[in-house]
Computed example of a mutant assay.
Amino acid sequence: MKRLLVLFLMVLVLAVGFAFKAIMVTDTGGLGDKSFNDGTWAGIQKAAKELGIEAKVIMSNEQSDYIPNLTKAAQEVLKEKDGGIVFAVGFMMQDALEKVARQFPTVYFAGIDIAFEKELPNVINFLFKEQESAFLVGYIAAAMTRTGKVGFVGGIPIPPVERFRYGYEAGIKAYMDLKGKKITVIRGYTNEFSDPKKGKDLANSQFSQGVDIIFAAAGACGNGVIEAAKERSEKLAGKGYENIKNYALSGKPLYYAIGVDVDQDYMAPGIVLTSAMKGIDTAGYYGVMWAYKGQFKGGLKVLGLKENGVRTSEMKYTKEIIEKLAPGVLKELEYLKGLIIEGKIVVPDSEEALKAFTVKGVRLPR
């Protein structure tokens, strides 16, 4: 009995004494963006809860905060008996992450939407094929527009934002190729990620030009796009999901938004048609798990539809609306998704590839 008690106390001491910390340094969008930062943090929190470890956030108010915040996070991790991992969230942190990671070679780092010219052994870089999920939502937008004009609102035109745009426009081009429908895309950029008012103003400008659906890849600025679509639609249909749904099912036109990064459909039920999601939560989760379990391996990981690294939302509030107003489009979408996974359709990730993109050889199932 005494021996069992000693063993129990030893196990208890080891458990209590284990110290591992996961720290996320946000970009300037910060927590509460309901998008990029929140999505990554959700994955980190999930892993931390399962493992019983500490997770914390260091907020960046401006780009000059990136290096000092990453440095502070690395220093905190070094103090932990069992180490930890530091996350840098967003392409804008690329140079800062590379500099700090070189200064702390024994600390694990994970970069979201970040890639280096030369990989570092202590950094996992996660990139996503945003263009693949954006292709799917672009196809839906093309099928659902009543005016023949759809919009795109980007934040800063950095590579991940532009990959969203390329995919979105490719999905629209695919619909035009397959259906012979003429659709115009109106583009605009807020040139930042943290001001919803700028997103709302730009969305209202596009709506006033005849656009009826806008895809926002603009961080917290995209929240303003959703708000603009909601306000305009509620003036027509009345407030509340049931009013929106019934108005749409009656065949009357509304204004719609498309969410990004995470499932944003809940933010305006019936008005956010779908969301082009990327596995930032998955990256956050596995980054922590691999570091904690000794399975960390630095290098680049690129995640697309095939790896379930990007996807669309389940369209909980809009599936019935889409099926009624664009019959067969969701079935077509599944078929096209399969062709992308098989490599038979390669969604463009550059302007040049977008200009050359066509699916005229594809035959949709009857």
Rank of each mutant, 00 (worst) to 15 (best):
residue 86 V to D: 04
residue 86 V to N: 09
residue 86 V to W: 00
residue 88 A to E: 01
residue 88 A to N: 04
residue 90 G to P: 08
residue 90 G to L: 07
residue 93 M to E: 15
residue 93 M to R: 13
residue 93 M to K: 11
residue 95 D to E: 15
residue 96 A to K: 03
residue 96 A to P: 09
residue 97 L to G: 00
residue 97 L to R: 01
residue 99 K to E: 14
residue 99 K to C: 10
residue 101 A to N: 11
residue 101 A to S: 13
residue 102 R to V: 12
residue 105 P to H: 07
residue 106 T to G: 02
residue 107 V to K: 00
residue 108 Y to E: 11
residue 108 Y to T: 06
residue 109 F to E: 10
residue 109 F to T: 08
residue 110 A to E: 12
residue 111 G to V: 12
residue 112 I to R: 01
residue 112 I to K: 04
residue 113 D to E: 15
residue 115 A to H: 07
residue 118 K to I: 07
residue 119 E to C: 10
residue 122 N to D: 07
residue 122 N to H: 12
residue 123 V to C: 12
residue 123 V to Q: 03
residue 123 V to K: 01
residue 124 I to V: 15
residue 124 I to R: 11
residue 125 N to A: 12
residue 126 F to M: 13
residue 127 L to R: 14
residue 129 K to F: 04
residue 129 K to I: 10
residue 130 E to H: 07
residue 131 Q to P: 14
residue 134 A to F: 06
residue 135 F to Q: 08
residue 135 F to G: 03
residue 135 F to L: 08
residue 136 L to G: 05
residue 136 L to M: 15
residue 137 V to K: 11
residue 137 V to H: 06
residue 138 G to H: 00
residue 138 G to P: 00
residue 138 G to L: 13
residue 142 A to C: 03
residue 143 A to G: 13
residue 143 A to F: 07
residue 143 A to E: 02
residue 145 T to V: 11
residue 146 R to T: 14
residue 147 T to R: 10
residue 148 G to K: 06
residue 149 K to N: 12
residue 150 V to K: 01
residue 150 V to C: 05
residue 151 G to D: 09
residue 154 G to M: 05
residue 154 G to L: 04
residue 156 I to L: 12
residue 158 I to P: 07
residue 159 P to V: 09
residue 159 P to H: 03
residue 159 P to K: 04
residue 160 P to F: 11
residue 160 P to Y: 07
residue 161 V to E: 07
residue 161 V to H: 05
residue 161 V to W: 01
residue 168 Y to W: 11
residue 169 E to Q: 15
residue 170 A to P: 04
residue 170 A to I: 06
residue 170 A to W: 00
residue 171 G to I: 02
residue 177 D to K: 13
residue 178 L to E: 10
residue 178 L to H: 08
residue 179 K to N: 06
residue 179 K to F: 14
residue 181 K to T: 13
residue 182 K to P: 11
residue 182 K to Y: 08
residue 182 K to C: 06
residue 185 V to K: 07
residue 185 V to L: 05
residue 186 I to S: 13
residue 190 T to V: 12
residue 192 E to N: 12
residue 193 F to Y: 11
residue 193 F to D: 02
residue 194 S to N: 13
residue 195 D to R: 03
residue 199 G to C: 10
residue 199 G to V: 01
residue 200 K to M: 15
residue 200 K to A: 15
residue 201 D to V: 13
